[in-house]
């Protein structure tokens, strides 16, 4: 029997890796990958707890919602990254310092 604790430890590892990627990378796309890792760690927790809710299926339903929201966020973020690249010719967040192009 696989217990809840195993799932929680794996998701904690993914979360910490995601935090590290977000804080250390100098490329907007890689930072986006880190954010996706954090979201996936949260979804793994939702799914693992959703096993104990057969009637309402709350965990799995909200895991689906979270996946859809993450996909929507990625599409908007990539559009913004493309615009930033067009303006600044770089996607390093440290070098983008003016709000008004």
């Amino acid at each position: 029997m696989i217990t809840l604790t195993d799932f929680l430890f794996i998701s904690a590892g993914l979360f910490c890796t995601g935090i590290f990627i977000v804080l250390s990378k100098r490329n907007a796309i890689q930072i986006l990958i880190g954010i996706e890792l954090i979201i996936n760690a949260a979804i793994l927790n939702l799914v693992a707890f959703g096993k104990y809710d057969k009637l309402n299926n709350a965990g799995q339903s909200f895991a689906l919602f979270a996946i859809v929201l993450a996909a929507a966020a990625v599409s908007v973020a990539l559009a913004i990254i493309l615009n930033v690249y067009r303006q600044y010719k770089t996607i390093d967040p440290n070098k983008v310092e003016r709000l008004k192009g």
């Binding site: 696989i2 799932f7 794996i10 796309i29 986006l32 990958i33 996706e36 979804i43 793994l44 799914v47 693992a48 959703g50 096993k51 965990g59 799995q60 895991a63 689906l64 996946i67 859809v68 993450a70 996909a71 990625v74 599409s75 990539l78």
Partner: peptide, 28 residues
């Protein structure tokens, strides 16, 4: 791992949306 948590529909959705959509978008 989602399959091991007995959430096969979420696993399929993960493959279709993330691998099929998000990753291709990132590559683009």
């Amino acid at each position: 791992l989602y399959v091991f948590a007995l959430a096969d529909f979420v696993a399929i959705t993960q493959i279709v949306i993330y691998v099929g959509g998000v990753l291709v978008l990132m590559l683009f």
